[in-house]
Design a protein around this nucleic acid. Structure first.
Length: 424
RNA sequence: GGAGAGAUGGGUGAGUGGCUGAAACCAACAGUUUGCUAAACUGUCAUACCUUUAACGGGUAUCGGGGGUUCGAAUCCCCCUCUCUCCGCCA
């Protein structure tokens, strides 16, 4: 959520920045917020002033009753009636305006960082860097879904029977490969100073709102109506919410956490080759890194997180490129996002495996995540997160890129975890 | 799921209708004293909003959340959430 004072003080810039994200009716909505805020302050003042008078009268009555002047007290009691009416009126109106203001603010996405390129879709993303050689495969090379079947390591049909499309069953060396990747990612994160946590896989509405999944992504999350809980679409939600309503000490920065979790996404509206095999699942595994950082250092931190993710991909010997997302392709909550894509040789396409973002104060404002600054005042911290990494497409790329006649070659870094160097 | 008890500031914990935004103690922070450490002493120590306060100013709200009674609620009533104890069930 954007900070109200920034909207008020930098109205024109806010509107301009929102246009980079192709946010519709920015001017209209921003002006509505400014007007609602003015109305809110007006009502607040009226309410406070009225309340101040009646508080004063109530005090007088107390004193009089104590002194035995009940007749005088009764007289003043009569007076309080009109103030009570006014208070009720003001507070009702105030509640109404506050709700409208809050709802309007929740609909405004984060402002993109100044380095974010303008653009409408993923085609306008900017390639920042690229690493590794794109492998040349034989003409009879298989796509990963065929490899999965050939070695019986991921069973899509079985998952289909048990649950439905997008819920595969990992078997034998396939299951072991999953477990190995998770351990590998967690160990690397821990070595890099991230504290491992195991968060809940379901969150309440407040948590989903705090990180920005609600109201923006309502309908993309699985919802347990019986208990009003959401299945997490990413560990970002529970892990960032560890710090909801917390006031940190400046010397605590950077606060670094990592977590493995399964992620659940309804993916309503996806179709075609995007959803084939492991490309897009309803349930998948991911190791997430989350950082809470001082506002002055959050962009340095973002670079470090990028370096961490790059290190993982290089250890796995997967060719990748880094994209700076354009305004139109960025998430609602992000100020700056770098996507990591791995080349999937048999499919001949780049697959997104990680997204590393700085949210600045967008999430911390929603969740009241603050720190005591050097002047002893509370101010909002910056939050960042990144996938490090999401498993399915990593597995897809590993299977496709490393296929040999003997089987699938396992990268050296992973062999201590898998216990085998060829998967067959 | 059934029965009972409870929820107060960073922590412990007092407070059953007005003088309580909240005692006391602990922790924390600043200072004094001091070869060093320790101890002692002094002071500071919630958050948010409003406000043309010059200013360490003024006002309002907040004692799990919401609603109600009352001139006045941490305190009384109702609903919800959560925690604890006992019973039941159970990976």
């Amino acid at each position: 959520m954007l900070q109200l004072n920034i909207i008020k003080e930098c109205r024109q810039q806010v509107i301009e920045r929102l246009s980079v994200k192709n946010f519709p009716d920015a001017e209209l909505r921003i002006d509505r917020i400014i007007a609602l805020d003015a109305k809110r302050r007006e009502l607040q003042k009226a309410f406070d002033d009225t309340k101040a008078v009646s508080n004063q009268l109530a005090k007088q009555i107390g004193v009089m009753i104590k002194e035995g002047k009940t007749a005088e007290a009764d007289k003043i009691k009569m007076q309080t009636a009109e103030y009570k009416l006014k208070e009720k009126e003001y507070s009702d109106e105030l509640t109404d305006v506050e709700m409208q203001l809050n709802a309007s603010l929740l609909e405004i996405p984060n402002l993109p960082h100044s380095s974010v390129p303008t653009g409408k879709s993923s085609e306008d993303n900017e390639v920042v860097s690229q690493w590794g050689e794109v492998p040349k495969l034989d003409s009879d090379a298989l796509c990963h879904w065929d490899i999965c079947e050939k070695y019986d390591i991921v069973d899509f049909a079985l998952g289909n029977k048990i649950t439905g499309a997008g819920f595969p069953v990992y078997k034998g060396k396939g299951a072991k490969l999953q477990r190995s990747l998770i351990s590998f990612f967690l160990d690397r994160a821990t070595a890099n100073g991230f504290l491992e946590v195991q968060p809940p896989l379901m969150v309440n509405e407040q948590s989903a709102l705090a990180t920005g999944q609600l109201p923006d992504k309502d309908g993309q999350m699985y919802f347990v109506s019986e208990d009003k809980l959401f299945l997490i679409p990413t560990a970002e939600v529970p892990v960032t919410n560890i710090f909801r309503d917390e006031i940190l000490n400046e010397k605590d920065f950077p606060v670094k956490r990592c977590a493995y979790s399964q992620c659940f996404r309804r993916e309503a509206g996806s179709y075609g080759k995007d959803v084939r095999g492991l490309n897009r699942l309803h349930q998948f595994d991911k190791v997430e890194i989350v950082v809470v950082e001082h506002p002055d250092r959050s962009y340095e931190q973002l670079e470090q997180m990028k370096a961490h993710v790059s290190g993982l991909l290089e250890s796995l010997e997967l060719p990748y490129r880094i994209l700076r997302l354009c305004g139109g392709d960025m998430s609602f909550t992000s100020a700056l996002t770098f996507d990591f894509e791995v080349f999937s040789a048999a499919q001949g396409r780049w697959l997104e495996v990680s997204s590393v973002s700085n949210f600045e104060t967008f999430q911390s404002n929603r969740m009241k995540l603050r720190f005591k600054n050097s002047e002893g005042k509370n101010s909002l911290a910056h939050t960042l997160n990144g996938s490090a990494l999401a498993l399915p497409r990593i597995v897809a790329a590993l299977l496709e890129n490393n296929q040999t006649k003997e089987g699938i070659r396992i990268p050296k870094a992973l062999q201590p975890y898998t216990g085998f160097d060829i998967l067959y």
